[in-house]
Amino acid sequence: MEKLLEILSGVRPDVDFTSETALIDDEILESLDIVAIVSEINDVFNVELNVDDLLPENFNSAEAMLELINSKEN
């Protein structure tokens, strides 16, 4: 989780990713944020998130993103 939080706060240092659970629903993240987050996740975790993984429910919270990464690593 730490690695992920580091990525997220690098992209959006103004957001508290430990507590937000509606990053998409509350329009906190914007399109370029998602592009940046996906590219960082792919690099750092050595996974390949593709267009099928880009769904709102996978990005509403740091936890959801971690779940997605774990599912890809497995």
């Binding site: 998409i24 329009e27 399109s31 998602i34 267009v51 099928d52 880009l54 769904l55 709102p56 990005f59």
Partner: peptide, 10 residues
């Protein structure tokens, strides 16, 4: 909606 530009399948 803005979210369509984050989630291309939508």
């Amino acid at each position: 909606p803005q979210r369509f530009f984050m989630f291309p399948i939508l």
